[in-house]
């Protein structure tokens, strides 16, 4: 047992173990997802996250140790957010084409995306910290982390909220489009990106490139809008610091 522990200590002296573990889980998650014929209720990220959590628990590797090593990957979220400026630019003609409906829909839908869950959680008696952690649930991770830190929420809970929201968005969208008889890929993509951030966007790219383009548009705009709205809203209602 002590030999195992010292081996684990040796392996985790560099971040490479944590990085390798993450890549392994991600690749296996993707492989299983393809093998299962891309089920909409079980996205690759959920499979990978479960595998990774299971592996950490089996090895007895503390999450803090793993997370420290994985910083080598998470630090890339900064430049990855900046990179979203590229699809945003590439879709400028489409934004201009549909600017009116999108400009009307986005503020309402992005506000409601945060509001519905906050209102339900508040009615069910959740604490201020939990509310602050759930507020950015529909925002893409790099932006959402910044928002949550400003609101005084827990980043770990936010990330869980992102996972649950993103995964839930996919079946919600396919049910609703069937119910409302919507087959316009632009609408489906926009709704996936607006509500389901990166996870919804990955799904939209599986439907079609057009859906994917509108999903990244919805994701970017929701991120920007929410990043400006939530901290102000929080200050107005006098929560957090």
């Amino acid at each position: 047992m002590s030999a195992d522990t010292s081996l684990l200590t040796l392996l985790t002296t560099t971040p490479l173990f944590a990085v390798g573990l993450t890549l392994t889980a991600y690749l296996i998650g993707n492989g299983v997802f393809q093998r299962l014929k891309r089920p909409s209720w079980l996205p690759a990220i959920l499979i990978a996250a479960l595998l990774l959590a299971g592996a950490l628990a089996l090895m007895g590797l503390p999450y803090a140790t793993y997370h420290q090593g994985a910083t080598w990957l998470t630090v890339l979220l900064g430049p990855a957010t900046v990179a979203l400026g590229m699809p945003l630019y590439q879709q400028l003609p489409r934004i201009v084409e549909l600017w009116r409906p999108l400009a009307i829909c986005l503020p309402i839908a992005a506000t409601l995306a945060a509001f519905y869950s906050l209102a339900i959680a508040w009615l069910l008696g959740s604490s201020d910290t939990i509310l602050a952690s759930l507020a950015a649930k529909s925002v893409t991770a790099p932006i959402a982390i910044g928002i949550t830190e400003q609101l005084g929420g827990t980043v770990a809970l936010l990330m869980g909220a992102l996972l649950i929201t993103g995964v839930a968005t996919i079946p919600c969208v396919s049910l609703t489009t069937r119910f409302l008889r919507i087959d316009d890929e632009r609408l489906i993509g926009f709704a996936l990106g607006l509500n389901g951030h990166a996870i919804g966007t990955v799904r939209a790219f599986e439907i079609s490139p057009t859906a994917g383009a509108f999903a990244s548009l919805g994701m970017s705009l929701t991120g920007i809008f929410t990043a400006m709205l939530l901290p102000l809203a929080w200050r107005l209602i006098g929560m957090g610091s």
Partner: peptide, 25 residues
């Protein structure tokens, strides 16, 4: 484009280390 495209494609993987944290709280 050469830098942005792979980074955007990896967005889901980059949030994984954080997402996994939820299982530990």
């Amino acid at each position: 484009a050469a830098a942005a495209q792979p980074l955007i494609a990896l967005l889901a993987m980059l949030i994984m280390p954080g997402v996994v944290g939820v299982f530990f709280i």
